[in-house]
């Protein structure tokens, strides 16, 4: 699986860093790491039991949070998921949810390594 990361987004977050404040980028990435599994769980659960609304909400949240940290391909996948959910295309949702966990893991790992390099 190939993922796409946009490190400009992370640099953009760094630009918002104010002096004498907690590290914003670190905080955002932590939020991404901590919050995303819950969203993924929502999507997978929805696919498993056929709860379209659950898929849509999970995908929508993850779409935004991943876009914030420059996880481009993850965000795109989430967008497609959300749209499919809206259409009620459960099969497409099932298809897209496959590899969702892997894509998140890789994206998160890529971001972490960028942070280490930057530090």
């Amino acid at each position: 699986m190939s993922i796409e990361l946009d490190f400009n987004a992370l640099q953009g977050i760094s630009a918002l860093q104010r002096p004498n404040k907690p590290n914003l980028l670190e905080r955002i990435v932590q939020l991404f790491e901590c919050e995303s599994p819950r969203c993924i769980e929502q999507v997978l659960h929805g696919v498993a039991v056929g709860d379209i609304e659950s898929i849509r909400i999970g995908a929508h949240s993850l779409k935004s949070s991943s876009a914030n940290v420059g996880a481009v391909s993850l965000s795109l996948r989430c967008r497609e998921l959300e749209q499919a959910a809206r259409r009620g295309d459960i099969e497409r949702c099932a298809l897209l949810s496959e590899g969702l966990v892997a894509e998140f893991d890789e994206s998160a790992a890529g971001i972490r390594s960028f942070l280490k390099q930057a530090a």
């Binding site: 977050i13 860093q17 104010r18 914003l24 955002i28 939020l31 935004s64 949070s65 914030n68």
Partner: peptide
Amino acid sequence: DDDAASLLLAESSLED
């Protein structure tokens, strides 16, 4: 916003 990261980013930018 229900997204904590968005709130955080906007807060940082706007307070600045």
